[in-house]
Amino acid sequence: MQIGKKPTPAVVVMGVAGSGKSVVGRALAKALDARFVEGDILHPPENVARMASGLPLTDADREGWLDTIGKEIAHAAAGGEAVVAACSALKRAYRDRLRRHQVMPLAFIYLRIDPTTARLRVAGRKDHFMPASLVESQFADLERPADGEGALALDASLPIAELVGASLQFLLAGEPLR
């Protein structure tokens, strides 16, 4: 798919647990007529068990998971599909790891949220492996995207339609992506 005359980049909706990555990612994928990749379902069983037991993931725990997501994005893009993925991508090194798999620009939509709201949202989820007790560890790991990373930061408390609209404007503007 293209936005205007520019090819749609692959997009990662990122942020801590409870920021709304999956909800916004699905809505953005629908608006772009893109494939949606849910990062949470790509965690290996060991990662799910670790988080479910209240232990945060380490950088090493995340490596294979990030590679799987990066390959899913690259596979879709190589097949000519627009693609939107939901992935925490908390650190610059994680975002760089996702970029290593890409042959096209990778845009990031960073959903900013405060710790209290994130904890409340995670505590209110049903049938999810990540407990609210791990939200603090996500904020401890978080490295907000820096200038030049091809990222748009948005307030996660905004309505979904506004978040999607702002994301589409960002992608249409063709900001420098990496």
Results as ranks from 00 to 15, higher is better:
M1I: 03
M1G: 13
G4P: 02
A10S: 13
G15H: 02
V16G: 13
V16K: 01
V16A: 15
G18A: 07
K21V: 03
G25S: 15
A27E: 08
L28H: 08
K30H: 15
A31N: 05
A31I: 09
A31L: 05
D33P: 02
A34N: 09
A34I: 00
F36R: 02
G39P: 03
P44T: 09
A49Q: 15
A49Y: 05
M51R: 06
P56Q: 00
L57W: 00
T58D: 03
E63M: 07
G70P: 08
K71I: 11
A74F: 07
A74Y: 07
A78F: 03
G79R: 12
E81P: 00
A82N: 14
V83I: 10
L90M: 06
Y94S: 15
Y94N: 14
R95W: 03
D96N: 13
R97L: 12
R99P: 10
H101Q: 11
P105S: 05
A107G: 12
A107Y: 10
I109R: 12
Y110I: 06
L111N: 05
I113T: 15
T117Y: 00
T117N: 02
A118V: 13
L120D: 15
L120P: 07
R121M: 12
R125S: 04
H128W: 01
M130G: 08
P131W: 03
A132L: 03
A132W: 00
A132S: 04
S133N: 05
S133C: 00
L134M: 03
S137A: 10
F139L: 11
F139Q: 14
A140T: 13
R144D: 15
P145A: 02
G148W: 01
G148Y: 01
G148A: 06
G150W: 00
G150E: 08
A151L: 00
A151F: 01
A153T: 15
L154I: 15
L154S: 05
L158A: 08
L158Q: 10
A161C: 11
L163P: 07
L163Q: 11
L163G: 09
G165I: 11
G165A: 12
A166Q: 13
S167M: 12
L168R: 14
E175F: 11
R178T: 09
